[in-house]
Design a protein around this nucleic acid. Structure first.
Lengths: 238, 238
DNA sequence: CGCGCTGCTATACGGTCGTACAACAACAGC
DNA sequence: GCTGTTGTTGTACGACCGTATAGCAGCGCG
C-alpha cells in the first residue's frame, strides 16, 4: 500500500490569486444557496480550502462579500456594455441592445437574484457594502447616461435632464428585472424590452415633461409645483 | 415579603388574536433587525411569549413569515389606495396621489426595505411565500390597472394594453422605491413622483408604442419584431 | 368550588455559525 | 540541502438556531 503518490496536502498561493479564488467561491455559494451559502465553512469547501483561511485573507466575512459584490456588479456591467457596443449601430439601437442584454437568460437566473438580495440586505448594516452599492449604482447610471447622452441631438430628440433620465431608466430596468427573476411567468423578456423601448420612445419624442424642464441641471425644480393642498401625504399605515 | 401582587404568569388568548399578535411581533422584529430578527426567540420576546409558542400556532417559521408578508403587503396597499381615493379628484389626479403615497416617508423606511428583502429571499425556497408574492403582486397590479383603466377614454387618451401598462408602472415604482430606500440621497421623493408622472403623461399622449398595439389583449405580439439578426443575446458573463 | 381542557412555559437536544489560536508544511532564499 | 517565512490547517470554544416534548397553569364549565 502507500501508493507513492504523495501529493502535497495543499498548495500555497500568493495572496492576490487566493483572494480572487475566495471571491469566486463566494459568488458560487451565494448563487447556489443564497443567504445560507454565506458561511466560512461553505465558502471554504467550495474553494477547496479550510474555513479558517477566509479570516486570514479578509478582515471579516462582510469584507469578502463587499469584494464579491463589486466584482460581480462590475463584471455584469462590463458584459452588458460589451454586448451593447456594436459600433455600426445607431445610439437608439445600442440602447435596445442594452435592454436585450439586461433581460438575457444569464441575467434572469434566480440564483443571481438571491445573490443580489444578500448584497442589498447587508447595505444598511455594513458601511463597506454600502460604499460598493454607491459606487456600482453610480457606474450603472453613468453607463446609462452615456447611452442616453448619445441620443440627444439626434433628429428631433429634445434636450433632457440626463441624470434624472438615467435614474428613471435604471429604476424601470431594476423593477422589471426583479419581477422577472421572481416569477418568470408574469411576462416574457421580450415584453420587458418592449416596455423599456417604449420609455425610450417617449423620451425621444419629448413626452416626458419633467425631464425637459431644466436642461442638464442636477436638482429637479419642484417638479411641476404641486397643484393640490399643501399637506404632504401622511399614511396612517395601520 | 411576598407582596401579594400575584399577577398571573401569563394570559391565555384565543388562537386568532394570538396569531395576529405573533404576526405583528414578526413584522416589528423584521423591521428592527432584518433577517437577524427572524428567529423564534426574538419574535417570542417581542410578543412577550415563550419561543415555543410560535411552533404551537404555526406549523413552521416560514408559515408565520408568509402570513406576515400577506398582512403587511395588503395593509400597505390598502393605505396607499385609501390615500389615492379622494372622490372629487380626476383619475389623473388620483394616480398622482397614488405616487405620492408610494414615496411618502412611511414607505421609505429602511426597516421596511429590509423586511421586504427577507420576504423576497424566501420566495425561491418556500412555496407558501411564493404564493403570497403572486397574490399580492396581482393585487398591486390590479390596483394599478383600476387606476389606469379610469384614465382610458378621457379626453384624447388612446386605448392601451392595461395589463402591460400596469406591469411597467409597477416596475418603475418598485425600482424607484428600492433605490430611494437604499440611498435616500440619490434623489428626493418629489423627483420620483415626477418621473412617474412623466410616464403617465407619455401613456396619455400615446407615446408608448408597444402599449398601443393590441387593445387589451394579454400577450405582447412579438413587440416590434426584432430588426437585428436572429441570435439572442448570449452574454459570456465572465 | 373543583375539575379538565388546552394554551403556554421551560428545558433539552443536535446542529451550524464566526472567531481564535497553536501547530504544521510548502516553498523561496541562502 | 537546510532554514526561515508564512500561507494553511485543524481544533476548540461560546453563542445562537429550530424543533420536540413533558409538565405547569389560566380559565371556562359544571
Amino acid at each position: 500500500m502507500a501508493a507513492e503518490e504523495q501529493s502535497p496536502k495543499f498548495r500555497r498561493a500568493p495572496p492576490t490569486v487566493r483572494r480572487e479564488a475566495l471571491i469566486e467561491a463566494t459568488l458560487a455559494c451565494l448563487r447556489k444557496h443564497g443567504r445560507e451559502g454565506l458561511s466560512v465553512r461553505r465558502i471554504g469547501a467550495e474553494a477547496g480550502v479550510s474555513p479558517g483561511l477566509i479570516n486570514h485573507h479578509f478582515p471579516s466575512i462582510c469584507a469578502l462579500v463587499a469584494a464579491a459584490y463589486e466584482t460581480l456588479s462590475m463584471s455584469l456591467l462590463h458584459s452588458i456594455r460589451q454586448h451593447a457596443r456594436e459600433d455600426e449601430a445607431s445610439p437608439r439601437e445600442r440602447l435596445r441592445r442594452f435592454y436585450e442584454a439586461w433581460f438575457a437568460p444569464a441575467l434572469l437566473d434566480p440564483g443571481l437574484f438571491n445573490t443580489w438580495l444578500v448584497f442589498w440586505s447587508m447595505i444598511s448594516h455594513h458601511a463597506e457594502v454600502r460604499a460598493v452599492h454607491d459606487r456600482t449604482y453610480a457606474a450603472y447610471r453613468a453607463a446609462l447616461e452615456s447611452l442616453l447622452g448619445e441620443l440627444r441631438g439626434n433628429d428631433g430628440v429634445p434636450r433632457f435632464r440626463l441624470r434624472s433620465a438615467a435614474i428613471a431608466l435604471s429604476a424601470l430596468l431594476d423593477g422589471l428585472w426583479i419581477e422577472a427573476s421572481i416569477n418568470p411567468r408574469t411576462f416574457r423578456p421580450a415584453e420587458a424590452v418592449a416596455l423599456c423601448e417604449d420609455w425610450t420612445s417617449a423620451l425621444c419624442a419629448g413626452a416626458l415633461p419633467s425631464l425637459l424642464a431644466g436642461g442638464t441641471r442636477g436638482q429637479p425644480r419642484a417638479a411641476g409645483r404641486r397643484p393640490r393642498n399643501g399637506r404632504g401625504p401622511a399614511l396612517p399605515l395601520k
